Simulated scan of single mutants.
Amino acid sequence: MTDTPIISLRGVTKVYGTGATAFNALKGVDLDIRAGDFVAVMGPSGSGKSTTMNILGCLDVPSEGTFLFRNHPVQTLDRDQRALLRRKYLGFVFQGFNLLARTSALENVELPLLYRGDPKPERRAAAMAALDKVGLKEWWDHTPAELSGGQQQRVAIARAIVTSPDVLLADEPTGNLDSERSVEIMQLLTNLNQESGITVIMVTHEPDMAAFAHTIVHFKDGLVDSIEASHVAGTPTARGN
């Protein structure tokens, strides 16, 4: 982990609608996330955590404020440039897995590389390596229907890391899993963070899952309410200002 923030938010606001119907989802968020950190984002519904994650994932843009990714002002990028940043630097994991039902695990993992235009031999090799990282190399030819929920989420994580992203954004990655499978997925994310150096930012409602992170960021009423170190030894590695 480095002291240099990979992500910095300063005074970030997000307003939906106009006039009397306007809703201030974010009211001036300040947050630094350091490269190599594992951050859990928590808060009640409507607290702003999902809006913040959408902005961090370049799926939405701030109404006001500054969003720096590796010191580059993301809010100045156009839609195509944000899409390029997503493809090159970000990986996404969702609660619902979002796998294609009639394709194999290998083909699902290949998809980001297919969209990127990588040659088939390179795609296959990278996808097999990603499946190996999540412990599913032997299941490469199985469809989602032939996999357990935990295995499907592992395939989804392999798909997210096949492009070697700098940041992995995980939205309730254990929300559809039982407690045993949830712990397996959290251990996998921890290993990817520690061994591959991927910065992990995870939204969760579950304190037990958040405890796997280095740092827990609590949102409330559109602002960062508090930041605390988790059970991992050391100083907090994300901070609000």
Rank of each mutant, 00 (worst) to 15 (best):
A126V: 06
A126C: 03
A126R: 15
A126N: 06
A127Q: 12
A127I: 00
A127E: 07
A127S: 15
M128R: 15
M128S: 11
M128W: 11
M128C: 09
M128Y: 04
M128F: 12
A129D: 14
A129I: 07
A129Q: 13
A129E: 15
A129W: 03
A129H: 12
A129F: 01
A130V: 07
A130R: 11
A130F: 13
A130C: 12
A130L: 06
A130K: 08
A130H: 07
A130E: 05
L131K: 11
L131T: 11
L131N: 09
L131V: 12
D132F: 03
D132N: 14
K133W: 03
K133Y: 00
K133N: 06
V134S: 10
V134K: 13
G135N: 12
G135W: 08
G135Q: 04
L136K: 03
L136P: 03
L136R: 09
L136I: 04
K137T: 08
K137S: 15
K137L: 14
E138F: 02
E138Q: 15
W139I: 00
W139C: 13
W139P: 00
W139M: 12
W139T: 05
W140K: 14
W140M: 08
W140Y: 15
W140D: 05
W140L: 06
W140N: 11
D141T: 14
D141Y: 09
D141Q: 13
D141E: 14
D141G: 00
D141N: 14
D141M: 01
H142C: 07
H142E: 00
H142I: 01
H142S: 06
H142L: 11
H142Y: 08
H142P: 00
T143Q: 13
P144F: 01
P144H: 02
P144K: 00
P144Q: 01
P144W: 01
P144I: 08
A145G: 15
A145I: 12
A145D: 14
A145L: 09
E146M: 13
E146Q: 15
E146R: 14
E146K: 13
L147H: 02
L147C: 11
S148L: 05
S148H: 04
S148T: 08
S148P: 01
G149Q: 08
G149F: 04
G149H: 04
G149Y: 05
G150I: 04
G150D: 05
G150Q: 05
Q151G: 07
Q151K: 09
Q151R: 07
Q152W: 02
Q152S: 02
Q152R: 15
Q152K: 15
Q152I: 01
Q152A: 02
Q152D: 02
Q152H: 06
Q153N: 00
Q153Y: 01
Q153R: 10
R154N: 04
R154F: 01
V155S: 10
V155K: 11
V155H: 03
V155I: 14
V155F: 11
A156D: 03
A156G: 02
A156E: 01
I157T: 05
I157L: 09
I157V: 15
I157Y: 09
I157N: 03
A158C: 10
A158V: 06
A158T: 05
A158W: 11
R159N: 02
R159V: 09
R159G: 05
A160P: 04
A160D: 08
A160W: 07
A160M: 10
A160F: 13
I161G: 10
I161W: 09
I161K: 13
I161D: 09
I161H: 08
I161F: 10
V162P: 06
V162F: 06
T163K: 10
T163C: 12
T163A: 15
T163V: 09
